[in-house]
């Protein structure tokens, strides 16, 4: 299993646990904070499920470059950095824009949206050409040789 996949899966597991802890705190009025519901759902759906899907597909889909280097897995690394920095920034800034509207937290939330876009866009660019038939995979392998 390549390093990028291990990172996606392990980060996903961390988000899974944190999202459920937030789910528990959402049921306790004294532990409530602003934007708790969207944060719970996004940590679960994006932080956990989407990261697991991305990590496993980068590993299992045909056409993977087996030699590990930043260059060979460049789009995967950009996806990891974009998605996780974007999500982390959102988790911090989204509750704070309710407490401090019209401050830097608003700008950081916009940055987080852009980072999400960069991350997911890089993943789509990486995986789209790897959605191929057996025949296409064999032809590609022949060309490489």
């Amino acid at each position: 299993m390549p390093l990028i996949t291990r990172l996606f899966i392990k980060t996903g597991l961390v988000y899974f646990v944190i999202s459920l802890l937030i789910g528990i705190s959402s049921q306790i009025p004294s532990l409530h904070f602003p934007a708790i519901t969207p944060l719970f759902w996004h940590m679960l759906m994006l932080g956990w499920i989407t990261q697991i899907i991305i990590g496993v597909s980068l590993w299992m889909f045909p056409g993977r470059k087996k030699e590990e280097s930043f260059q060979n897995q460049r789009l995967g690394w950009i996806a990891y950095a974009g998605l996780n920095s974007g999500l982390f920034l959102r988790v911090i800034s989204e509750p704070l824009i309710y407490a401090y509207p019209n401050t830097i937290w608003g700008e950081l939330l916009v940055v987080s949206a852009v980072l999400h876009f960069v991350g997911i866009g890089s993943y789509v660019l990486e995986i789209w050409p790897r959605v191929m038939s057996r025949k296409q995979r064999l032809n590609r392998r022949k060309k490489r040789k």
Binding site: R90, E94, I97, W105, G106, E107, L109, V110, S112, A113, V114, H116, F117, I120, G121, V124, I127, W128, V131
Partner: peptide, 22 residues
């Protein structure tokens, strides 16, 4: 491939709503 297109559509809608919050 359809799921990847939906991912991009959902992401665009989500990002716009997030920006709309700020």
């Amino acid at each position: 491939r359809l799921s990847l297109v939906y991912l991009l559509l959902g992401l665009t809608a989500g990002s716009l709503m997030l920006i709309n919050k700020a």
